[in-house]
Design a binder for these strands. Structure first.
Lengths: 196, 196
DNA sequence: CAAAAAAGCGCACGATCGGTTTCTTTTCGT
DNA sequence: ACGAAAAGAAACCGATCGTGCGCTTTTTTG
């Protein structure tokens, strides 16, 4: 069962790239099979249905997101520098790690926002979990910690700037998108850290 | 040529709703025809191809966006109150006017962000035009006017909060999304209007 | 009111969709 | 090294995709 795991990982990676560019529901099994260099029936040895494959693809993207953004900063002490590192890694996640097609999680959230179903629910849970992490992280910006409501608002703004960065950089092709998001986030931390 | 225009308008409206929910590229001609009470071939009397219909649908959505957001505030004097009205109308556009499926323009921008073609180009132009309007509007926040770079940054933040509102409200089902976006925007205006 | 034009339907086409079946090859535990 | 199990290929299924063609009905116009 070792060869199979390798191809399964390859399928998840290639299908993820295709879905990020063409959309999760606009990627056919033929597309994935061809890109992976195997036949359509070969895919079904690893997934029971297209829907099951989509779910694996999205969940795998979430796992890789956490590995990429969270893992390398979790050893840092909570506070401003870790927040800045998280933000920077998320900018990298969008522009570097997912250079072709952008962030699958973000585009899937838009595709799924009015499509009830288990996939939507699972992605919703993962994103809510991430929002809680960001809020907790934001509370640790000051000593004593920020109150929950203030931190939640700051987390909303932080997330908004990341969405704005993706929109400005990827669709509008604005070369300054990264710098704009970074500056906005820095100002957010400045005014949140010090009262008044 | 009067009856035809009415049905064409109906097609644009229904196709727009379907595309907002299911995605622009995931809406079949069968879906649109059935929703309009027409046959599939009947659609081709109004559009030369599916691609041409998609383009008309998106451009029509842009027109309706301008009518809904800009038209009712353009008689106000430029400044903070008009900026607040624009923001409020955009919140309404997302949650009230497009209650089912959300804003087609926003979701189309995500779908098209890595799909080169005339449709992407046309939507890009419309959104860039809108960004220019917002930047100009932001410059008029103070007297004397803000410098261009500051206004551009503020417009980026404003747009980010609207994206954050759509994400939080529609996908995350956060009931406080509207209030969060409004509060973030108000703070943005406060700190941008007064120096320091 | 008649002629012309527009609107719309039914049908069939080739391609592709997600998915299944049958069969061959490859891999792996023992 | 051998047999079982997994991996994969090829052909195929019914359904649906976008799109033409030919016809009828409705609407507009002279």
């Amino acid at each position: 069962m070792r060869k199979g795991d390798a191809t399964k990982a390859r399928i998840l990676a290639e299908a993820g790239r295709l879905a990020a560019v063409n959309g999760l529901f606009n990627t056919s099994l033929n597309d994935v099979a061809e890109r992976c260099g195997l036949s359509k029936s070969g895919l079904f040895k690893h997934f029971d249905s297209k829907e099951a494959m989509q779910e694996s693809v999205v969940m795998d993207a979430c796992d890789r997101f956490v590995d990429f953004v969270w893992a390398p900063v979790q050893h840092l002490p909570a506070g401003r520098s870790r927040l800045e590192a998280i933000f920077e890694r998320q900018l990298d996640w969008e522009t570097v790690e997912n250079a072709a097609g952008g962030c699958l999680i973000m585009s899937s959230a838009v595709e799924l926002d009015d499509r009830p179903g288990p996939l939507r629910d699972k992605l919703h849970d993962r994103l809510q979990q991430w929002r809680r992490i960001l809020t907790r992280e934001m509370m640790a910006l000051t000593d004593p910690p920020l109150d929950y409501e203030t931190a939640k608002m700051a987390a909303f703004e932080m997330n908004s700037f990341l969405l704005g960065h993706a929109n400005a950089g990827r669709f509008m092709r604005d070369g300054d998108a990264r710098e704009a998001a970074r500056a906005a986030f820095r100002r957010l931390l400045d005014r949140t850290a010090k009262p008044g």
